[in-house]
């Protein structure tokens, strides 16, 4: 049941990116963000964006994670951005001269009415396919394929009804203009830069989480936050808390799984039954779970105290990790390349 929850999306490996320390990668990500903000000020200056794209592609190749996996995690974002791209393309502040204009197109309400009629016919066919017991259509694959359209169709139908209500008083001969659509330099540029920045930053953060264990990530973060100690902020306690929380997530998932199985074996049913039965099944899950969590927490607290843990004390690390040659090397290389790209 919990097979699909991948916590963090760490891909074990031994590539250059895996060997870099967590804080190096965090620093690099921060640096890229700063770099993008600066690059955004230079319109039509493509070099920084080419460098970013090249570096992100290089990162994916070096990390040794298959392109297929990276793509699988990116496609939803790309789809969302595609939807957002259309309005971005037509952004205009009214002052710059248009690059290209098309429209306005006169549209008659008759056209809209006929479209609605056509939609109605299609909808009827769909419902007929879906509900009527036509034996040749009982094939499961077709059914499940049709099922996918159910929710979008409900929304579209609602939209059509609202539209019908809106245009109920307009005479059939009337027309209205659609457009004009204006594409400006600014629109093209913001589309390009926004797109690149989004994708590249997303790839970089993907790479960060795919090549760093959550624990190493938190360690890196706290090391970067150490200056905050001077402000009397409890950096160490925060680090310990986060580490414990992270450490306990898999244990908890295991416990939930075990309890679920145990209660299902005793007759609990989480997917069927009346509301009351399901609530009781949930109680049967959560009461023992909470009990276990509290027991574990108090055991852990005792264990920590018996080893001399003190709130607010300064902690040192068992394994001091200094930045290695590759860390410095990669940091220097990236800074040189990115800064250099401004002068091309």
């Amino acid at each position: 049941m919990f097979k699909n929850i991948s916590l963090g999306i760490y891909y074990p490996g031994n590539s250059l990116l895996h060997r870099l320390q967590g804080r190096t990668k965090l620093l690099l990500l921060a640096w890229f963000t700063v770099y993008i903000v600066i690059a955004n000020n230079y319109m039509w200056h493509f070099a920084p964006y080419i460098v970013l794209a090249a570096l992100s592609f290089l990162g994916v190749v070096i990390s040794g994670i298959s392109l297929h996996h990276v793509w699988r995690r990116m496609r939803l974002l790309l789809l969302l951005m595609l939807l957002g791209a259309i309005p971005t393309l037509f952004t205009t502040d009214g002052t710059v001269k248009p690059l290209y204009t098309f429209g306005p197109f006169p549209t008659s309400f008759d056209f809209i009415r006929w479209s609605i009629v056509a939609y109605g016919v299609l909808l009827t066919i769909y419902i007929a396919l879906f509900l009527l017991p036509i034996p040749s259509l009982q094939i499961i694959s077709l059914r499940s394929w049709l099922k996918r359209f159910r929710i979008p169709l409900i929304f579209i139908t609602l939209g059509v009804i609202v539209l019908l209500w809106l245009i109920r008083n307009i005479p059939p001969g009337a027309t209205f203009p659609v457009g004009p659509f204006v594409i400006t330099n600014l629109g093209v540029w913001s589309l390009f830069s926004l797109y690149t920045v989004f994708i590249v930053l997303y790839i970089f953060s993907l790479l960060l989480t795919m090549t760093t264990t959550p624990i190493a990530l938190i360690e890196g973060l706290t090391m970067l936050l150490t200056p905050l100690r001077w402000l009397k902020l409890p950096v160490d306690d925060f680090a310990l808390m986060t580490l414990i929380a992270l450490r306990f997530i898999p244990t908890l998932i295991e416990e939930v799984e075990q309890l679920l199985k145990a209660q299902i074996s005793r007759g609990a049913d989480y997917a069927h039954g009346t509301l009351r039965e399901r609530t009781q099944s949930l109680i049967a899950l959560f009461v023992p779970l909470l009990q276990g969590v509290f027991r574990r927490a108090s055991d852990l607290a005792t264990a920590l105290e018996s080893r001399g843990y003190e709130i607010g004390s300064h902690q040192t690390r068992l394994h001091e990790k200094r930045l290695g040659a590759i860390d410095y090397g990669v940091l220097a290389l990236v800074v040189i390349i990115t800064v250099g790209s401004f002068f091309v």
Partner: peptide, 9 residues
């Protein structure tokens, strides 16, 4: 299961 006493509620 193992440690079944944990499932009592």
């Amino acid at each position: 299961f193992q440690f079944p006493e944990a499932q009592l509620f």
